[in-house]
């Protein structure tokens, strides 16, 4: 029994997602350990993003269940929840492969939007806020502080009042992570956070993710193609191919799994040895 099976933050059981005749995810089960950085990898089209979409309410899975176990002991069946509640109650946040910021709003506003729910409650659903309720002012101040904290952590604090669309690509990626963190998640799902980043930015990202995991009790599930990121920071790697799980274990164990190598090289299992000899691994 591995460490992630003992007290998982997220349990995926027999998840299946079909689109007509196409089976995008087929009977997938795995655990995401609490406080771990878990990587979900696989060749293009393996169904990784589909798993994310099921997690965050974009798709309703055809079969299976997804259980979010919060720190306070509550359990949520994500496949049954409307998407806005997944963030608000189950505390799962995600980012996108193609960045989805609110481009016309400033950086600070982007981060404030993520704190909408606590602010609405504190402002008595806006009515109290209009009359300057002190609890609202306090909540608003705290929200700005939290936003500034994350802007500092992502190195964007100088541009807090610039429109998000004006940021360079790498900064937009970090802002998306900052925004996700502002919603106070217990599980952060990142879809290819290192895509398009240069090696320096990629190293900064690694440091940021490790900081989040260490200081904020936030578990991280990430999809990544950049193996340097995966191997360096992941505690646990799950490999998908054609919607099925082909390997599951520590980064080191997965790296040497012939099935994984076969999937990435695109050959059947039994030919792996021959190919490896050929290329000299």
């Amino acid at each position: 029994m591995s460490s992630w099976d003992i007290n998982p933050v997220l349990t995926i059981e027999h998840l299946t997602m079909r689109f007509g005749g196409l089976v995008a995810v087929d009977d997938l089960s795995f655990n995401v350990g609490r406080g771990d950085i878990t990587a979900l990898i696989g060749p293009n089209g393996a169904g990784k993003t589909t798993v994310f979409n099921c997690l965050t309410g974009f798709y309703k899975p055809t079969e299976g269940r997804i259980v979010m176990n919060r720190l306070n002991g509550e359990h949520f069946l994500l496949e049954r929840m409307p998407d806005f509640q997944i963030s608000a109650h189950a505390k799962v946040a995600r980012t996108f492969q193609n960045i989805r910021l609110f481009g016309g709003m400033t950086l600070l506003e982007n981060l404030m939007v993520a704190q909408h729910n606590p602010l609405m409650v504190a402002s008595g659903y806006t009515i109290g806020g209009i009359f300057g309720l002190t609890s609202f002012r306090k909540a608003e101040r705290e929200a700005v502080e939290r936003a500034c904290y994350w802007l500092e952590k992502t190195g964007l604090v100088d541009r807090a009042d610039a429109p998000a669309a004006d940021l360079p690509y790498g900064d937009q990626r970090r802002l998306e992570i900052a925004r996700a963190m502002c919603s106070g998640p217990e599980l952060l799902c990142l879809d290819e956070p290192a895509a398009g980043l240069n090696p320096k930015e990629s190293a900064e990202l690694n440091a940021l993710l490790q900081y989040i995991r260490k200081e904020h009790q936030t578990s991280i599930l990430l999809i990544e193609h950049d193996m340097s990121v995966v191997m360096e920071i992941s505690d646990h790697v799950v490999v998908l191919d054609y919607g099925e799980k082909i390997s599951d274990g520590t980064a080191a164990a997965v790296k040497d799994d012939p099935k994984v190598i076969a999937a990435y090289l695109g050959v059947p299992d039994e030919e792996v040895d021959a190919v490896e000899e050929e290329v000299g691994i």
């Binding site: 806005f84 997944i86 506003e109 608003e140 925004r179 919603s183």
Partner: peptide
């Protein structure tokens, strides 16, 4: 200035993303 207004502007730009941030669209 208000959180409600911010949520409205967020929905204006990307409704799906707004709901993923916990806004009841």
């Amino acid at each position: 200035k208000t959180s409600l207004g911010r949520a409205q502007r967020a929905c204006e730009q990307d409704r799906k993303m707004a709901s993923l941030l916990g806004i009841n669209v």
